[in-house]
Design a protein around this nucleic acid. Structure first.
Length: 256
DNA sequence: AACTAACACAACCGCGGAGTC
DNA sequence: CGACTCCGCGGTTGTGTTAGT
């Protein structure tokens, strides 16, 4: 008998997450923690599998995530750690608080691998390519040797997007203020909503609350941490960038 | 302006390990 | 001890965006 699927896939939604889904997931985790991912979608009212929820939280919604491009210093650290640890991305990510293994893995595959090759180093062995002839076959499987990918010719080609992102992150002050106001509105709406929907949930702090009203008792200990984290989160401009371009409109309370 | 290629990264898939019964 | 469940990891794919023509 083969392995059972992680969840019943019939009727489950796939693909990109909507803002509504993100809020439902945040709402649930902030109030209940992440004791059992399998039960999260069920209790949060999401048509997703637990795995998908876990990934979305870890890679995108977690309050302590650090956004923005990786610096060259971070890249160098990744290269050193990769030389020691290999493709153990989660282990490498442990050295970069706020960065996810997925983010580092993606960055490695799209940028660093190319950068190393440009410098004449084998991304697998970290040795000069001519000394890594035995790995040539393996190296040929890398993305830009597939035939449809062009190797960059100059160093400046290596970080075009990173440079662009730096420009974008240096937001116009008005943009930042608008974002801040939008998110404050959002939290206010959700806090009001939580009072309406959850007479039973504990609202003895002033932190933004997304209560669904079906909180699990076992997660109470984690709640204080999550509330604190969420409060820090809303005051972190970096985190605002998670919701690029989003402007809360209409009655958010209808979402829950 | 329209089309295409390249890029970046979010999301999915399948496997292995740990824990439980 | 084996069957089963769940979680976490790494590889891969899909999709949206940007740059180039």
């Amino acid at each position: 008998m083969g392995r059972q699927p992680c969840c019943e896939k019939i009727g489950l939604k796939r693909g990109p997450w909507s803002i509504e889904e993100d809020y439902k997931l945040m709402n649930f985790i902030i109030n209940n923690g992440t004791q059992c991912w399998r039960m999260v979608p069920k209790h949060a009212g999401l048509l997703r599998c637990g795995k998908s929820c876990r990934l979305r939280w870890i890679n995108y919604l977690r309050p302590d995530l650090k956004r923005g491009p990786l610096s060259e210093v971070e890249e160098d650290q990744i290269i050193q750690l990769h030389a020691r640890l290999g493709n153990r991305w989660s282990k490498i990510a442990e050295h970069f608080p706020g960065r996810t293994d997925n983010e580092i893995k993606n960055h490695w595959n799209t940028r660093i691998k190319r950068r190393l090759t440009l410098l004449g180093l084998d991304p697998f062995t970290h040795k000069p390519l001519e000394q890594s002839a035995e790995h040539a076959t393996k190296s040929e499987q890398t993305s830009y040797s597939n035939g449809d990918d062009k190797e960059p010719q100059v160093e400046s080609e290596l970080y075009p997007v990173a440079e662009k992102n730096h420009e974008e992150i240096a937001l116009d002050t008005n943009d930042t203020v608008n974002l801040f106001q939008s998110y404050e509105m959002l939290w206010e709406n959700l806090s009001m909503d939580s009072k309406v929907h959850s007479e039973t949930s504990s609202s003895n702090n002033n932190s933004p609350s997304f209560s669904t009203g079906d909180s699990n008792s076992h997660a109470i200990c984690e709640n204080s941490f999550m509330h604190e984290a969420s409060q820090n989160w809303i005051h972190s401009v970096d985190s605002f960038l998670l919701w690029d371009g989003f402007r809360p409109q209409g009655d958010l309370s209808t979402w829950f």
